[in-house]
Structures are given as structure tokens and as C-alpha cells.
Nucleic acid binder design. Structure first.
Length: 335
DNA sequence: AACGCGACCTGCGAGC
DNA sequence: TGCTCGCAGGTCGCGT
């Protein structure tokens, strides 16, 4: 929903100019702000791809544009090997993408498509001026209150499994190098439950810890984890090596439901395109059953006429919210 | 391999 | 009223 919306606005358009309003948001681009701009200006956005909380835009050269420069040699070489043999991108005027503009939205980041007359947002960090297109605003803005997120340019490398790198309309078996260590998220069509379950069972850890490990499954943060566990009626400390297949399916299905509900609420709330990986505050306000509900009745138990109060515990320097009745703590690390 | 923890950053609410 | 303080979140990197 989020990514699809963005792609329809920006894919195929040239980045004509880049304003870095706050260089702190370019922190992870090691070659600096000037190199960041140099890589983007003149490039064409080929697509918008998402994996977990990373969202990137593969870039191709405009036919008359200067080649991108300043990309580290190792990533350039890696992407070079990927080019041969990969299928040609249908809408790609300049060959296979070698680099991508990466955005991580962190906690509070947003990508906004805005017209030139829209006033700057208070926390505007980066402004991309796009080539004009009829009926569409001309700016893509990165807005971030807390600077947990950021933008940078990274190389494109082949995916390990040969499947598309992430969720996209025009998938290529390439992935932005900085996201290559991130597992597919449960909404990705190429997500493999079998692979996930196999790796989960081999872990000797607790279920929530595993859900938060982005190298095992991505897109699930503290809030989604608590909500998914509540829906699946599983405790956060449940040992992963005792988890039955049906239980793992249940918690993943629950995570999908939570993610979809949050994305649906977040992707449609503004006229201008509004992207916020955290999901809509509206969704959080209305639909949370466990997270942040300490001291309130468990909705499921209440519906069954049972009195039970959501409990909050310290966990991983964060918090874990559970219903003591319908998410009982496992005994002996087992059930 | 698993895991804990500090750092990063800023708005907000609690407490004084 | 105005101040300080602690907390919240995702990710990374380091130490164990």
C-alpha cells in the first residue's frame, strides 16, 4: 500500500536537484553529502522497493545524464556482476540499476510527495526536486522528527535466493546492499514460511526475541510483536525450539494482520501521499489490544466474561505487554 | 550463536 | 510557570 502509492508518483521521474536541509539525516552515507547529491542529481527513479522497514528506489541513468560517480568500488563491482544475465527492466531507459536511494524511516520518518508551493515541514530533512509530470506534485520530501531514520545511496547486489529483492511492481533479483542482511517480511510474496520455521526451530531463544530479529523475519517491531503475540495467544518467552508449526503459522498470520491494518490506516490518511512505516497513529489509537494497554482489561478475556488485566514487563530494555490469562507464561521454557 | 547494552535523537509527560 | 528527568522507538556495533 505504502510502497505502491509512492511508486505511482515517482517512478520514471528524474531527480533534478537535491536539497539536504539537515545533513544529520545523511549520516550513513560515508562519502558525504556532496557525494550523496552527486549520485542522485540527473538519475531516474526506476522503482520503489520495500523490505522490512527499508525502502529504496533503484536508480538508472537518464539517457543523456552523466554516469553516477563516487560509489565505493566494492559495491560497484558487486552490482556489475549482477547486470549480466539479469532480465532487462521493461521501463528502464538506462540499463540495470547499479545504485539505489535508500530511505530508512526509523521511528518517525515520512516520505511525502509535495507541490512546490507547500510550506516546508518543521522537520524537513531532504528535498528531491523531480522532473515535472502532469497532475503530479514535483517534490519528494524526507521528513523525520527524531533522526532515527536517514537516507543514503547504496549499491545493488544480487539476492541470495534469486527471487525479487523486495516488494515492487517491476521486480528484479537485486537488492540494495545495505538491506541484504534483512530477512523478507511476512507480506513479501517471496517470503518462505518453511525457511522461517526451520530457522526459528534451530534458535535457542524466546519467541519475541526471534520476532524482533530482522535477520530472521523483518518488519516486526516492538509494537507489532506484542500485538501479534496477543492475537496468537502466545507468550513472548515461549522457547522457539518447542514451537509447533501451527503456532508459528498463527503468530505470523497475526503479524500480517497487524501490519496490514497499520499500513492501510497509514497509507490513506492524507491527500498528499503520506508514507510512514510506523503505521497510522489512528490505527494505534483505536486498535491496540496489548501494547500500551497496561492496567486495562484484556479485550478477548473481557468478551468471554473473564476478568484479566494487561501486564507490562521489562524486556530487552523495552517492554512486553501480555494478558496473563490468555497468554500464559510457559513453564520450564516449554509450554 | 546468542544476547545484553549503550548510542543515536527529540517530543512529551511526570514530578518537583 | 518552568525546570529537569526519564522514557519511547529501530538499528548498529561492541563486549561477553
Amino acid at each position: 500500500m505504502v510502497r505502491r502509492g509512492l511508486a505511482s508518483w515517482v517512478a520514471g521521474r528524474t531527480i533534478e536537484a537535491v536539497d539536504v536541509v539537515d545533513p544529520r539525516s545523511i549520516r550513513r552515507h560515508l562519502l558525504g553529502v556532496e557525494d550523496f547529491r552527486g549520485n542522485l542529481e540527473g538519475a531516474v527513479v526506476a522503482d520503489v522497493v520495500r523490505r522490512g522497514k527499508f525502502l529504496w528506489m533503484p536508480l538508472v541513468d537518464a539517457e543523456a545524464a552523466q554516469p553516477a560517480s563516487g560509489v565505493p568500488d566494492d559495491t560497484a563491482a558487486a552490482s556489475g556482476t549482477a547486470v549480466s544475465g539479469a532480465p532487462q527492466h521493461a521501463d528502464d531507459p538506462g540499463g540495470q540499476p547499479k545504485v539505489a536511494l535508500m530511505a530508512h524511516l526509523g521511528m518517525s520518518g515520512q516520505l511525502l510527495v509535495q507541490g512546490n508551493d507547500a510550506p516546508d515541514e518543521k522537520h524537513l530533512k531532504v528535498r528531491l526536486r523531480l522532473s515535472p509530470r502532469d497532475g503530479m506534485p514535483d517534490q519528494l520530501r524526507f521528513v523525520d522528527q527524531r533522526i532515527f531514520g536517514g537516507m543514503f545511496v547504496t549499491g545493488m547486489i544480487p539476492t541470495v535466493d534469486g527471487a525479487p529483492g523486495g516488494m515492487s511492481a517491476n521486480p528484479l533479483p537485486l537488492i540494495a546492499a545495505e538491506a541484504a542482511h534483512i530477512a523478507r517480511d511476512p507480506l513479501d510474496p517471496a517470503f518462505s514460511f518453511d525457511l522461517f520455521f526451520q530457522r526459528l526451530r534451530r534458535r535457542k531463544t524466546g519467541l519475541k526475541r526471534a520476532l524482533l530479529d530482522q535477520t530472521l523475519v523483518s518488519g516486526i517491531g516492538n509494537i507489532y510483536a506484542d500485538e501479534a503475540l496477543w492475537r496468537a495467544q502466545l507468550h513472548y518467552a515461549r522457547a522457539t525450539d518447542t514451537l509447533r508449526r501451527a503456532e508459528a503459522e498463527r503468530v505470523l498470520d497475526s503479524a500480517r494482520e497487524v501490519m496490514e491494518a497499520a499500513l492501510a490506516a497509514g497509507g490513506t490518511s492524507f491527500d498528499a501521499l503520506y508514507v510512514n512505516v510506523n503505521g497510522a497513529s489512528g490505527y494505534f489509537d483505536r486498535s491496540l489490544n496489548a501494547y500500551g494497554q497496561e492496567g486495562k482489561p484484556c479485550p478477548r478475556c473481557a468478551a468471554a466474561g473473564i476478568h484479566s488485566i494487561i501486564r507490562r514487563e521489562q524486556f530487552m530494555n523495552r517492554s512486553a505487554h501480555t494478558c496473563p490469562v490468555c497468554q500464559p507464561r510457559p513453564r520450564n521454557g516449554r509450554w
